[in-house]
Simulated scan of single mutants.
Amino acid sequence: MNRSKKPMNKKPMNPKSNPSPIKLYTVKEPSELLNFLITTLSNQGRNSIKSILSRGQVSVNNKVVTVYNHPLQPGQTVSIRKDRAPEAPPMIGLTILHEDEDVVVIQKDSGLLSVASDQAHEDELTAYRQLTAHVRIGNPKNRIFVVHRLDRDTSGVMLFAKSEHVQQTLQNAWQDTVKERTYVALVEGMVKKQEGTISSWLKESATLKMYSSPYPNDGQHAVTHYKVIQSNRNFSLLEVHLETGRKNQIRVHMQDIGHPIAGDKKYGSTTKPINRLGLHARVLSFIHPRSGELLRFETEIPKSFINPSRVAPPQ
Rank of each mutant, 00 (worst) to 15 (best):
M1Q: 12
N2Q: 12
S4T: 10
K6R: 14
K11P: 05
P12V: 09
P15C: 02
S17E: 08
E29M: 09
E32N: 11
F36M: 06
L37I: 05
I38W: 09
T39V: 14
T39E: 15
L41G: 09
S42K: 14
Q44P: 06
L53R: 08
S54Q: 14
S59Y: 10
V64E: 11
V64D: 13
G75S: 01
T77K: 15
K82F: 13
A88S: 14
L94A: 07
I96S: 01
D102H: 08
K108L: 00
G111M: 00
S114N: 08
V115A: 14
A116H: 10
A127D: 05
Y128C: 06
R136K: 14
R136Q: 15
N139R: 01
R143Q: 11
V146K: 06
L150A: 00
D151L: 02
D151P: 00
T154G: 03
T154Q: 01
G156V: 00
S163I: 01
Q171K: 13
N172W: 02
A173I: 09
W174I: 07
W174V: 03
T177L: 07
R181V: 03
R181W: 07
R181C: 10
Y183W: 11
V184P: 00
A185W: 01
V187T: 11
V187A: 04
E188Q: 10
G189P: 00
V191Y: 04
Q194I: 11
I198A: 01
S200I: 02
E204W: 06
L208S: 15
K209A: 07
M210T: 07
S213I: 01
Y215E: 15
Q220Y: 07
Y226A: 04
K227P: 07
L238C: 04
H241N: 15
H241S: 12
E243C: 07
Q255H: 02
I257S: 07
I261G: 06
G263N: 04
K265E: 12
T270K: 14
R276H: 08
G278K: 10
A281N: 03
F286R: 09
F286A: 03
H288D: 00
L294Q: 10
L295Y: 07
T299N: 01
T299Q: 04
E300V: 09
P302A: 00
P302C: 02
S304E: 15
P314C: 06
Q315V: 13
Q315I: 13
